[in-house]
Every structure is written in C-alpha cells, then in structure tokens.
Design a protein around this nucleic acid. Structure first.
Lengths: 258, 258
DNA sequence: ATAAACTATGACGTAACGTTAGTGTCAAGA
DNA sequence: TCTTGACACTAACGTTACGTCATAGTTTAT
C-alpha cells in the first residue's frame, strides 16, 4: 500500500520537511511516485523509517545511518539487538543522572558534601559513544573487512618496533609520492603505480587486500573521518584524491581481468 | 577557588569551545578573570554549569536555560525536582522504545503482527515536550504573572461570546494603531498613548497589570515565540517595537513617580 | 632564554532540519 | 465547469550549538 507524504509523516510522527530531507539525502527514498511527482511511500519505506528513528534515537548521524541501513548486508535483527544494548546503557545513564539529582538536592540543602567529579560524572557519554563507534565500525567491516581486521591483528602482533617503523615509513613514502602527484589526474600512470604499491604493501604488511576490499578501503578514506583526517594531514584533499585513484585502479584491474 | 578554562572543561566534561560559547552567550560567565584576560571560574560557576547540563540533558535550549537560570528567583531545589520528574518520563519513554524493539524483532521473525501506529508510538515526545513547556511557562510566570494568570482566568471565565469579541476587537484596534506608528520612534507620544491604553485594557479585561508585570509582558513578546509570532502577524517587527515602547512607557511612569 | 602548553578572539563550517515563498495538483461542492 | 481549500512540490535562507582552524598573547617548566 502507498502513502502520500502527509500520511507518512503522521504515521511516523515526523515532519514533512524531514521526509523531504531524508529523500534528498538518500536515506529514505520513496519507492515510487505519482504521475504528478508526488512521493508515494510503501510499507517497506515505512518500516525503513522505523529503523531510521531507532538509529536517530541512539544518536547516530544521518550519514552513519544511511551507510548502515542502505548496505545490502544490513541485518535488521542484529541492529535491533544492538539498539537494545545501547538503549539499556542510555537507561543506566539516566538512572545515574537521577541519582545525581538526589545527591545535588542533598548538597544544596547542606546535608552532604559533593565533589566536583561527582557533580558531572553522570553526564558522561563515553561508554555510549564507544558502543556506537564499535557498532558502526563492525558494520563497516561487514565484508572482507572483518576478516581483514583479524588477519591484520594476527600479522602485526608479531611485529617488532623496528619492523613497525619500516612498515610505517614505507606507507608514508607511498602516500608522499601520491601527494606529490596531486596536480595530475588520479588516473595518471605514476599515481596508479603508487596506488598499486600501496595495495601491495597492505597485503604484505597487514592483510590480503583484494580488489573489493581495496575499493571499500578507498571509500573509507573519505567517509570515515579519522581516515580522512589522518591522510589529509599529509596534504589537504589527499584522502579524496586517493579514493578516486583507488577506484580507477580497481576498475582497471577488473577490466584487465575480463 | 578559581579554575582556568581547561580545568573547568575537564571537570565538567565539556569542551573549551563550549565554555567560550556559554560565556559569549551569557549563560555561564566566569565570575572573574586574570590580569591577562584569562577566564577564572569559581566554585559557584561550576555549580551553575552542573545546572546547565541538567537543563541540556532534558532538551531545553540554551536560550530557555539562560532565562530560567539567570532569573534572580531561580529555585535550584525546585528545578531539580522538576528535572527528576522529566527524567523519569524520559526513562519511561526509553522503556517503551526497548519494548518496541522486542516487538519489532518478533514482527521481523514473522511471529507477530505490528501495526503502523505501534511501530512509531514509542518515539513520541509529546508528553515530555508538554512538561518542558509547562515548567518553562511556570518559571516565566514567577512574579506577578502567576497571580495575573489566575486573575485572568477568573475574570475571563464569565465573559460572554459578545464580550469576548468586544475585548478582542479593542485589543486588535490598539495593536493596529501601534503598528501604524512603527515608522516613528517607540517613544513617540502617539505610541506611548496607545501603549498606555493597552495596559489599561489588560487591567480592565484580564488582570491588574502593574508596571512591573507590564514590563515583563513586553519582554515576553519577544522571548516567547508564540507571542512574537501572533503579534508579528499584524505587522512584521511589531513585537519588538512593542517591547521597546512598553519599556519606555514603564520607565517614564516610574520616573514620573519619583 | 626557550619551547611547549595554555589562553584569548575571530570567523567559517557543520548537521538536521524549520520556515517561507511561489507554484502545481487534487478533490469536493456549487 | 469553475472555485476553493487542502495538499504536494522545489528552492533557499535561517536556526542552534557548537567544531575547527588561524593567529597571537601568556604561563610554566627546563
């Protein structure tokens, strides 16, 4: 069954503007539209909206939510279970804040002492944020990435300090080389050679980097802020350039295999 | 004891930027500063920060928080008790969302049915928002406003439909007159006469409008969005103009009484 | 004296909509 | 068929509460 936008907004308890925004953002796009261009939301869209509201309730950004939900391996069941865990943590935090209120009242009425740390610790979101990040990270590693992570852990666990330094310097050198070619096209031969070397280096030093994994990693360089931030320290815009270069590299490798 | 900004930020678990912002915004201004201009936060500032975090946790805007906290009649004890009530409501809502997750899992696994309404009702914030608004409103009516409200209720309860219409038309006429003088100064004689008439009309038709109450009401016209919105329907900017005019009127009246 | 850490102000950017403007579409009633 | 009110669209600016970055002054420890 199809619902027009006001019906949908009323059902979900959100604004029409929000639905517009979600459509434009690519988070929840209606499955069809009328001949006059009206959005028509299906039952499946409605269910997706519910998922979105769960993620929103738990503090995930729309961007994060989009990445997780629109992934073809999105597991609703697993997500819901994870949500429940998070919600229980939020509930515990609420309890702590309530307790903190009681304590503050006693303090104000002069009955008790209250330390500075005690005043604020209930507001702490670290545990919740850590869990969110863990879940997001796990989700992003859905494919070979989770295997890659395990392999990487195993391989690097035996590295000596000297080996680590070697690995890092080689990585740095490759990135530096690519950064120096940034005024060229990502498809430039020199860039592509360096990208190939980067892939090789990953396979040798961290985990078996398949083309698929490599492409996903390239995406991560621009979608995961930590990656972007670190890479762009070398040169602003490098993360984006590198992503493009990796995509071209992977496409070329795929093409050459057909 | 005084704390510099990093110490304060660490104690409260918020960023330095946030403290800058709160200072600039007038929400939490440090009680003193060093000769070189460093902010120095006192124990009292720290305690105020805690109050701010409680309000923030409960979804109050910084603006609302500022109005409540910086009011000289701010009652910490009462606020905390109200916070607790709100937090218990939030906790209840969390429980409902958790229950909704369980239900959704059953639905996904095909065990049960789930209606559209059931999918979304747990996310509803109406009760919490209503409580927030109620508290804010009660706080804003701290002074004569709460008495004014009671008196207003009593007086208007006996109005006939005809009387209501009369009262409203007179109000509308006064506002209209003031709107027509908006290109003049708020201190203009014609404006001031109209403002005096408005005060008189309130006293006659609603409640005894003292100068103090009248001034506070003028403030409400620009700080309470509902007032602003309604008044500005007559003419954009009227609420602000009226506030200024009321302030001038009240000051003049006070001056003429010395 | 020096360098690192800390502090200040200024200002642009961000996320997720809310609000407004202007215009097209639909459905019911005259 | 025409009219009107409700509904829908897109575009675009505004809002809130900071995050981030730049630049420059101050403090602290070596």
């Amino acid at each position: 069954m199809n619902y027009k936008i006001k019906e949908t907004a009323d059902i979900a308890g959100i604004s029409i503007r929000t639905l517009h925004h979600y459509d434009q953002f690519g988070l929840v796009k209606p499955e069809s539209s009328s001949p006059s261009g009206y959005r028509l939301y299906s039952d499946r869209d409605i269910e997706k909206l519910q998922q979105v509201l769960f993620f929103k309730e738990l503090g995930f950004s729309l961007k994060e939510t989009k990445e997780i939900i629109n992934d073809k391996s999105f597991d609703k069941n697993k997500a819901l279970k994870n949500h429940k865990e998070l919600l229980l943590k939020k509930k515990k935090r609420l309890d702590e804040i309530i307790y903190s209120i009681d304590k503050t009242i006693e303090y104000i009425e002069g009955d008790k002492e209250m330390g500075k740390i005690e005043m604020f610790k209930a507001f702490n979101m670290d545990e919740i944020k850590k869990h969110q990040e863990k879940y997001f990270k796990e989700t992003k590693q859905k494919y070979g990435e989770s295997n890659a992570y395990a392999e990487c852990e195993k391989k690097t666990a035996q590295y000596s300090e000297y080996k680590w330094k070697e690995v890092m310097e080689k990585a740095s050198g490759i990135f530096q080389r690519i950064a120096e070619c940034m005024e060229k096209s990502p498809a430039d031969e020199e860039v592509q050679i360096a990208v190939g070397q980067w892939k090789q280096h990953i396979t040798e030093s961290f985990y078996n980097c398949t083309l698929e994994t490599f492409r996903s990693l390239g995406d991560l360089y621009v979608t995961d802020r930590r990656f972007t931030k670190n890479i762009d320290k070398i040169k602003p815009g490098l993360a984006c350039f590198l992503k493009d270069a990796i995509h071209i590299y992977c496409s070329n490798q795929i093409y050459s295999k057909i």
